[in-house]
Design a protein around this nucleic acid. Structure first.
Lengths: 249, 249
DNA sequence: GCGTTCGCTTGATCCAAGTCAACCATAAAA
DNA sequence: TTTTATGGTTGACTTGGATCAAGCGAACGC
């Protein structure tokens, strides 16, 4: 009987090893849709688990790429540095999400991945993943979906950066975080931000002061309650309305 | 003897059929790196060739995804439409590039692909491509690289939208076009824009007036010569310097 | 040929977000 | 406990690009 309830399983301590088959993120992560037998083959591949301390790099732009990484727990940001010193956060990643897909293209990482809290990752050697996905159709297809999802996500960010104003961007950002926390079984309405205002700003193409002001404004208007990094969403629909602000003009 | 010089081959008229093996874009496109025998297997798969007239859609957001498309000739844009009517151009694609990768994720296209000039595409049924890439390692790997490259490209656009000012964006855009034309054997210094100022603006997160002003400014400063859609780049380094403008401030 | 349309350019004005600066809050260090 | 550092908030002002508006030029249909 392969099907236990994904997020509720009890694991005896003795069983814990680096294995997708007993990871409660498997429905969000690479193993999605695999049979028990296929899962075990994936286990063989995902052997190295690593802890990354808050502030440390998982990898750096320019390093040779040979593995992608699944986040087991914790929180990361990725950023790109331009020659002239400008940089931009290209994404925030949480448990169950994959890091490093950008490195496949040139066999070198093209961005930095930095832990925003103490985290744990599973390294997945890429050539072995390709090998296994030549044998397991489901794995292959799911991996393609994950890559494609990343492209779609990026288009969303481009949309945000290209057409939205500051408050719309922040509303979209909060709703996106909320939705992803929900998918992981956390409250959709209350969470701690792992990143600073400056990092949010960098991601949203705004200055930190603008982010701060937008937070204050949302609070004044009763959409959220902010206390430093602690966010409570009081009015989801208010935020959603803010996001589509242009519709009314 | 499989290796003829990629861009110089002569093809007798009788041989022309929809086939990667006699397409002179094969070194830019999906067949990259394949052996002659592998190429022939890809030929079987890429059977349908379609003409798309200027202004027509190749596919629309929401349609069921079942194939990706390689551009044989012509020029496309992709755009995303928000519920509230805002839209944004997410990319411009030219011969040898692939369209439709975003559709894998949800099995539905997430953007519109529209021909900016009369074009010709090869449809590649996706499930068959997955099948073949389970058998041909090189094809699998190259496909992964192409998807990854798309992610990297998107990060570049995010960078552009998030941190660059209007003139830097346009300079980056022109240099990127120039570089892609060069890769296809065209002049790096002289080309026709297939898109309007408004489409450029949408892609770059600017209004068409701003794009037009930046063109005029570049011309005044002797970086380029503009006449409607005809562009001549007079000073590549000038443009490059413009792009990294912040370095000096 | 001529009028119409569409895309492009240019000027004048306005405003959202950036910049600069002061100050506050929290947490860690002394 | 006070000190220091880091991150966050708020205010005053400046500015790059948006907006509004007028006019131009090339291409197309009739």
């Amino acid at each position: 009987m392969a099907q236990t309830h994904p997020l509720n399983q009890e694991i005896s301590l003795s069983v814990i090893k680096t294995a997708c088959s007993n990871c409660n993120l498997r429905e969000l992560c690479l193993p999605f849709g695999l049979s028990l037998e296929e899962l075990e083959r994936l286990d063989d591949l995902v052997s190295t688990r690593r802890r990354i301390k808050r502030g440390d790099h998982l990898y750096r732009a320019g390093e040779v790429f040979d593995a992608i990484y699944a986040i087991r727990s914790g929180f990361f940001k990725t950023d790109v540095l331009l020659e002239d010193g400008r940089d931009q956060v290209t994404g925030f990643q949480m448990a169950g999400e994959l890091l490093g897909l950008d490195g496949i293209s040139t066999e070198h990482h093209t961005c930095n991945a930095i832990a925003l809290e103490d985290s744990e990752i599973c390294a997945i050697p890429f050539s072995r993943l390709e090998g296994l996905s030549r044998e397991i159709h489901t794995l292959q297809h799911h991996f393609h979906k994950v890559m494609s999802r990343e492209i779609v996500r990026d288009h969303g960010v481009m949309m945000l950066l290209g057409t939205m104003r500051a408050e719309e961007r922040l509303a979209a950002f909060l709703l996106n975080l909320s939705q992803r926390f929900t998918a992981r079984g956390f409250s959709h309405a209350e969470f701690y931000l792992r990143m600073t205002r400056e990092e949010i700003g960098s991601y949203l193409g705004l200055k930190l002061e603008t982010v701060s002001r937008a937070f204050s404004r949302f609070q004044e208007e009763g959409h959220i309650a902010v206390q430093q990094k602690h966010i409570r969403i009081l009015n989801v629909n208010g935020l959603k309305a803010l996001m589509n602000h242009r519709a009314s003009c």
